[in-house]
């Protein structure tokens, strides 16, 4: 308050003007938000539209007649239940793999000193320049030689650990006080138990971020499944959706129905973990 009592360079604005500005700002931000999420709203509303209403020169934001049958129709045209199941299996495996292995590696790198630890960290970070898009051909050959073409492990295997996840967990575990770990160690707790019962509970925000992002990234995968899957029974939903759009000349409304269904699991996971995700992103100071 001493600062405020020094001659202020500006006259404070009258209160009612300030509050007007605030509400004006809120209205502008709300308008911007609506504009940004408009394509999502379009997707939802179109999925309930009649097929022939597409590509009229106006968009009907609230369907005059609702067509919820777009959903079962779309699902029955191709093996979408199978595709979604496959995507689910792969994404849950990738999420689990990242949560487990990134946490283990992050703990090892954050709380232990051993010869070559820095080098290992840099080595892991350097794999950021080796995404599947770059190593597509040899990774395919590796998976092919393992006999994993057209299998679940073929799809999720190369996605099981991600360098960003390791880095994220290392950074999070760094801020867990070493005293807690030592105390548990002196009490005779095993190293894994320390990780599970002392370290992990303090890293829930980072773990939530890791879970949401690794699930989303795996759910999003397109190029890799496209490369490693040729049988319909192992197709993930993005492949199915593309095939669906290409081969059947299917109505946009049904494509959007599938797109909505594909979006729901990621939104749900985010909703469930949101409380921690925000903290994981360092947004706890936001009102």
């Amino acid at each position: 308050m001493t600062a405020a009592s020094r001659a202020p360079a500006r006259r404070p604005r009258p209160a009612h003007l300030r509050s007007l500005r605030r509400w004006l700002g809120a209205a502008l931000l709300a308008a911007l938000t609506v504009l940004v999420v408009l394509p999502i709203l379009w997707m939802v509303t179109t999925s309930f539209q009649a097929g022939e209403k597409m590509f009229q020169l106006t968009t009907e934001w609230i369907p005059t007649v609702w067509h919820p049958e777009n959903y079962p129709n779309a699902l029955s045209r191709a093996a979408f239940p199978t595709y979604f199941f496959n995507s689910g299996v792969v994404s849950v495996a990738v999420m689990a793999g990242n949560v487990v292995f990134c946490t283990l590696a992050g703990y090892g790198l954050a709380k232990f000193r051993f010869p070559g630890d820095r080098f290992m960290l840099l080595l892991i970070l350097s794999t950021l320049m080796l995404p599947l898009e770059v190593t597509l051909v040899p990774t395919f050959l590796v998976v092919y030689n393992l006999g994993w073409v057209n299998t679940y492990q073929g799809i999720f295997g190369p996605l099981l650990v991600d360098a960003f996840g390791v880095f994220l967990m290392r950074q999070a575990i760094l801020s867990v006080p070493s005293d807690y770990i030592e105390a548990a160690r002196i009490d005779g707790a095993s190293e894994l138990r320390i990780l599970w019962q002392v370290v992990a509970p303090q890293c829930r925000p980072a773990l939530a971020v890791l879970a949401v992002l690794s699930f989303r990234d795996s759910w999003d995968q397109f190029l890799w499944p496209l490369t490693v899957v040729s049988q319909d029974e192992y197709r993930t939903f993005p492949l199915g959706l593309v095939k669906f759009g290409e081969y059947y000349g299917n109505p946009a409304t049904e494509q959007m129905a599938i797109a909505v269904l594909a979006t729901i699991p990621v939104f749900l996971l985010f909703a469930v973990l949101q409380r921690w995700v925000n903290r994981g992103f360092g947004l706890s100071g936001l009102k």
């Binding site: 292995f101 590696a105 630890d117 290992m120 080595l123 794999t127 040899p138």
Partner: peptide, 23 residues
């Protein structure tokens, strides 16, 4: 030291098999 290295090992092996090897 060994415990620490053992924690990092699975991830490291993964990266050798699916990143550095293929590259």
């Amino acid at each position: 030291q060994l415990v620490g290295a053992a924690f990092v090992l699975p991830a490291l092996l993964f990266f050798l098999a699916f990143k550095f090897g293929p590259m």
